[in-house]
Nucleic acid binder design. Sequence first.
DNA 1: AGCACGCCGACT
DNA 2: GTCGGCGTGCTC
Length: 819
Amino acid sequence: MTTPRTGGSDPAAIAAGSAPSGAGGTAADGRCPPVAEVVVDIVAPDVDRVFHFLVPPGLRDRLEVGHRVTVPFGPRRVEGTVVGFTEQPGVPPERLRPIAALRDPVPVLTPALIDLARWMEDRYLCLFVQALRAMLPPGARGDRVRLAPRRWVRLLLDPAEARHRAETLARRAPRQAAVLERLAQAAPAAVPQGPLLAAAGAGPEAVKALARKGWVAVEEREPEPDEPAAASEPAARPPALTPEQAAAWRRLEAALAAVLGDAAAGDAPPSGGGVAARRGRGTGPGAARGGPAPEPAAFLLHGVTGSGKTEIYLRAIAAALARGRGAICLVPEIALTPQTVARFRARFGSRVAVLHSAMTPAQRLATWRAIRAGRKPVVVGARSAVFAPVPNLGLIVVDEEHETSYKQEEAPRYHAREVALARARLEGAMVILGSATPAVETYHRALEGELGLLELGRRIGERPLPAVEIVDMRREFGLGHRALFSRRLVDLLRQRLAAGEQVLLFLNRRGYHTVLLCRECGFVLRCPHCDVTLTVHQLASGRRVCRCHYCDHRQVPPALCPRCGGVALHPFGLGTQKVEEAARRLFPGARIQRMDADVTARRGTHEAIYRRFAAGQIDILIGTQMIAKGWDVPGVTLVGVVSADTALHMPDFRRQERTFQLLEQVAGRAGRGPRRGLVLIQTYSPDHPCLQAVARHDYRAMYRLEAAERRELGFPPFGHLIRAVVAGPERAPVEQAASRLAAAWRRAVDEAAVPGARVTPAAPAPIERLRGRWRWHVLARAVDGAALRAATRAVMERLREAWPRDVQVQLDVDPFSML
DNA sequence: AGCACGCCGACT
DNA sequence: GTCGGCGTGCTC
């Protein structure tokens, strides 16, 4: 998967500075050395290294590390990234060809980000070019996006005067008149030329003519990222802190001063300065171990929901800004709502850039450039915002750090939290990881002293956490109550509805376990491509359709069982639709709404349902994960978890952690208002220690459970995992290749004597077929992650010779999903 | 990854 | 006789 390359992938090389010539950009005299090191945009192990190109005279004083270029490559031209400069390339000079073109006026990446890409290559066993790609704004690649600035037209006349002239112009030049008319309406604001011309039914020549007359001016602007001008004034004063918050803030403030320097000193490194200047200044998260070091440079802020973590983030960001440093705040995609953004804008005004998945490539690119230019020192965004090219970065906040959406599930399969810690180390910045239910891995680091631990155990205003009640469904069943809702849940629902209060009914996943099952022979309908059970969905027309959750294969349910020919083939299991039906039957008068991936497939529905719910127009809202996050509705006094069992029995070593996080999250939806909330959990395992921990809101109890189990089995944080997926169009070569890989891998860890290493035999992946490809996998585990990675790299290198065609290996370091 | 070069089967 | 299959090798 990886190839050795100049600069190497030895982690030590990173700290020592692996840019071969050490050149961090254009030299002080404005000239760069004559040969540029370029990584081309081709994802293939063979070319995943530096190639050398001559810098043409015209680019001598402009080219910098991080620039995107077009280079001649064999018979064609490809795009690439400048990652360094050198005096002596390891190739004979006559083979060097010049760079063909510069693609961007300003480098898209910073030198520090290129160092980070090297770290990622080593840490995630991905290609260097894959790491670089992850850092580019979608749109920087290819020439699809228009790089030219957008034109805006401004009226230079008084609006009344303009209308008058438009009238006289109407006969001879109706297009120009229409343009003038619209500009007069918008005056004194400028108007984007494109929409203006479309609305006026005119062409660009109309504007040109008006400009010649001196009546209008054309301005060129970068495409503006959406930014409500109204909210750009920073708020007057931040709210006062609770005593707990104040104590946490004192420690953080001291650490910020230690790591970033004194606010007054104004010793911030020059913006855009090479990373070399800053390297070694920062105290890495590990630095606290040696000697009487003060505070570590990274913290875990463990605070229950409603304890005021965000206020701490905002203050820390303000402190970084005061020192002339920038900040990135990562939030899970789902939390990137207008409310979140508004909060940042209220505090930092137009200095905030928001990176949204919904942005167009052009907006994204414009935002990226504004960040790179230092005009937006505060960046808020989801996973990939960890790569925002903030010059002179001082702080990275990772909110809800336990969220699985921080793990990227395609190559490079990085985890934004880990990248944040590495980036902060490279750039001498601080990190704050925040969560009400930290990942076990993170909490372990905090207990080990690798992270500073700040705990907020109380909610602001001393509001109590919701009460949790567990219902034993075995008993219900034994007593002949076989309905979806226990008697207790029905009682509570009735009470709440009578009192005019709102209820959330939560289910693990949409349609999960609603399979087509034959009650005579046990046959279950599966996807012909993906080897998972199909899920039964009810269409609006009343017809049923069976769908695969992985590849979206659809088919009409067969009337008779394909195996035994019997007539007992029926949907079986728990889905949101079933819950909805049951609720409607029980409470025909109630206003009931279901919300899951099916319902919200149409864009905008999510927000619409939220608004109706918040406005009290829905009594019972039934939904999956998506109702668990961020919804703050004071009218909710009851949350019913229809079944906790699916979460609890997932085939996953993190299942207890995940169950705890999930249930705490849904519990957080109850009792945001004046009345204390109640959470009712239905389960067939009422004595399960994890559920007992949830009932007491006892994070540490869950942590101890998980830690004991994982230590025993050598799972993270007590060991490191690497998963290899072997995939190809035919089964036999895949199986054979996977077996060879497993054998070679085991031999490699044995030879290298990697401590505590274990390699599983090759096995079919839980989803053996996906999108028409066969998949087998192998899992390796070891105590020493770096040693395991080194051995893995060596194996891949060796296997690359004589590897069957059409068979690929994907490596996943620290995997989350094992499917 | 692409794209050239190169060496063996059925077609205007 | 040639068009075209995809195996092998290379790209500063």
